[in-house]
Write a protein that binds this DNA or RNA. Structure first.
Lengths: 217, 217
DNA sequence: CCAGTATACTTGTCTGACAATTACTGATCT
DNA sequence: AGATCAGTAATTGTCAGACAAGTATACTGG
């Protein structure tokens, strides 16, 4: 019997908004009023307000007091910060995994899914890709660390939705870089694994930033 | 002309609740109903609810759907996770600072305040101590990283309030360990700085855990 | 003493409302 | 014409009160 999650209306709404954000239906820079949300889901405005505030707390929406929520436009500085922080968290995680020579099974599985998803389209790669990286962090079994990395993953998904990757992701390259990282962890080569991760993330980040700057004007 | 922060009622309430949590007025394990908060500040229940939900999102209160919010009792596992995650974030930060030989001025100043606060009492040490560690992270100028570390700091403050440190903190030892860390950063000794940090945090954590276990039964 | 039910308490959500703030539009003046 | 200011519309912040739904506790019967 499957475990059913009892969610409140607010959670259901914020979940769906998240999906619409990641799917690109809600474009960067667009305004999102409480009345819009309330009308779209046919709920009361306070309920919509609470859902919006959840997303603001996660960094998936921008808002200050008395102003309409806006879907953030991720500029170069934000992307740099997101990827620097990813390197920061995940790099140290790899050091620990390498010290234990622990290769998370979930990471291997996720990387296999990356290859499978490659045939479907760029946006489909994002999910298993993120799952790979999250699996590395989750392997340390630290709830707080996983939560932090999860919030970064959400921001990356928002990035990906905004650039709407048009065939710019090379699945084979990504998968081989992932495999390389796992190999170095397995052999206990901590600094090598960190190096490989940094290169991998820098690669992804630069691709993102050049794509973004080319479609900005 | 000073920068005035326009805060909503909800923010003001959650700020004050935070202070009461850190001050130990609200003890671990205690229940905090929406009606309690609403009555205490003479505000409407929805407003109290929103303030509580902010704190839940920060991890400063526990709550699941349809249940009364509870002030978390930080057990050994939580403390271990908090300090492991601190090591994780701050250790990597030290590596970067050491590579730049960058010693944040704010960290020096905070450590000086630690010594000054030592004469006042244990709870007074906590603030400059946390400011020292936060200054190290802030020096990297990463908004996301600072936010993450800040949430850990808040949890540590909650810990400290719960053990109500009774003369168990040795100010001189803390300050000298801090100074040691800064020295190693200044000399570019990355792994030495990380080592010193790990020892420092492990020290603090063990003190916290033994104190906690002795007053638990 | 345990199980099941009944009651009180608490939270989730809604409707409707008003105040405070922001964004926009139009008129006036240089 | 362009800029500045006032007034209006739109939006958010907060409230009161209400009801449904879920949780916790006490009480009763076995």
């Amino acid at each position: 019997m499957p475990r059913l999650a009892v969610v409140s209306m607010v959670d259901a709404v914020s979940d769906d908004l998240r999906q619409r954000l990641f799917g690109g239906e809600l474009r960067g820079g667009a305004m999102l009023t409480e009345a819009d949300v309330a009308g779209h889901y046919d709920i009361a405005r306070p309920t919509a307000k609470a859902a919006i505030e959840q997303l603001v707390a996660e960094g998936l929406l921008d808002r200050s007091v008395h102003k309409t929520a806006r879907i953030p436009v991720l500029d170069a500085r934000s992307i740099r910060d997101i990827y620097d922080t990813r390197s920061h968290l995940e790099g140290e995680a790899l050091r620990r995994l390498a010290a234990l020579r622990l290769v998370p099974e979930a990471a291997r599985a996720a990387n296999a899914d990356v290859v499978l998803a490659g045939a479907l389209g760029d946006l489909e790669i994002v999910e298993p890709d993120m799952r790979f990286h999250l699996a590395l962090v989750d392997a340390l079994r630290s709830p707080r660390l996983s939560r932090m990395y999860g919030s970064l993953v959400n921001e990356v998904k928002l990035c990906m939705a905004q650039v709407q990757g048009r065939g710019l992701l090379s699945v084979d390259l990504i998968a081989s870089e992932h495999a390389n990282i796992l190999d170095r962890v397995a052999s206990g080569d901590a600094s090598g694994a960190v190096e490989a991760l940094h290169a991998h993330l820098e690669h992804a980040r630069d691709l993102l930033m050049t794509t973004l700057s080319s479609q900005q004007p």
